[in-house]
Simulated scan of single mutants.
Amino acid sequence: MDFSLSEEQRAITRTVRAFVERELFPWEDLLLRRGMESVVTSPGLTKDEKLLLQKKAADHGLWGVSAPEELGGADLDPFTQTLINMELGRTFISFTFGGEASPMLYRCNEQQRPDYLLPVLHGEKEMCTAISEPGGGSDVRAMRTTAVRDGDDFVLNGEKMWISRALESDFAVVFARTPEEGAGGITGFLVDRDLGWTAQHIPTMGAEQKVATMHFEDVRVPAANVLEGVNQGFDQLMRWVYDNRLFRVSARLVGAAERMLEMGTAWASQREVFGKKLADYSNWAFSLAELEIELRAARLLTLQGAWKASAGLDYRHESYVAKVHTARLANRVADEMIQLHGGMGYAMELPLERWYRDLRVIRIYEGSDEVNLASIARNLFRGNVRLGAVTD
Score class of each variant (00 low, 15 high):
6 S>H: 00
10 R>K: 12
10 R>N: 09
14 R>F: 03
17 R>T: 03
17 R>G: 02
19 F>V: 04
19 F>M: 02
24 L>Y: 08
26 P>N: 06
29 D>Y: 03
38 S>E: 00
45 L>I: 06
45 L>D: 13
47 K>M: 13
49 E>P: 15
52 L>H: 15
52 L>V: 12
53 L>C: 04
57 A>F: 10
58 A>Q: 04
60 H>T: 10
64 G>R: 12
65 V>Y: 01
66 S>G: 10
78 P>N: 11
82 T>V: 06
84 I>V: 15
95 F>K: 00
96 T>Q: 12
98 G>L: 01
110 E>F: 03
111 Q>R: 15
116 Y>C: 01
117 L>M: 07
118 L>V: 15
119 P>C: 10
119 P>R: 08
123 G>Q: 09
126 E>Q: 13
129 T>H: 13
130 A>Q: 00
131 I>P: 08
132 S>N: 10
140 V>A: 07
141 R>K: 12
144 R>S: 08
145 T>A: 14
148 V>W: 08
154 F>Q: 02
157 N>W: 04
161 M>Q: 04
166 A>W: 14
172 A>G: 12
174 V>M: 12
177 R>Y: 06
180 E>K: 03
182 G>I: 01
183 A>F: 01
188 G>K: 06
191 V>R: 09
192 D>H: 09
201 H>N: 05
204 T>P: 01
207 A>I: 05
209 Q>E: 08
215 H>W: 00
215 H>Q: 05
218 D>R: 14
221 V>G: 09
222 P>F: 11
225 N>W: 09
228 E>V: 03
229 G>I: 01
237 L>W: 03
242 Y>L: 09
245 R>T: 05
249 V>Q: 08
251 A>M: 09
252 R>Y: 02
253 L>N: 00
257 A>K: 00
257 A>S: 15
265 T>I: 15
270 Q>A: 15
274 F>W: 14
277 K>I: 09
278 L>I: 15
280 D>L: 08
281 Y>T: 12
283 N>C: 14
286 F>P: 02
288 L>T: 05
288 L>C: 06
288 L>Y: 09
289 A>M: 10
296 R>G: 15
298 A>N: 00
299 R>T: 01
305 G>I: 11
309 A>C: 00
310 S>N: 08
310 S>V: 04
310 S>C: 06
311 A>P: 02
315 Y>R: 00
319 S>A: 02
322 A>K: 03
329 L>R: 04
330 A>H: 07
333 V>N: 04
335 D>E: 03
338 I>V: 09
339 Q>D: 14
345 G>V: 07
346 Y>A: 14
346 Y>G: 07
347 A>F: 12
351 P>V: 15
362 I>K: 14
364 I>M: 13
366 E>G: 13
366 E>Q: 13
372 N>G: 01
376 I>G: 11
380 L>C: 13
387 L>Y: 06
388 G>C: 02
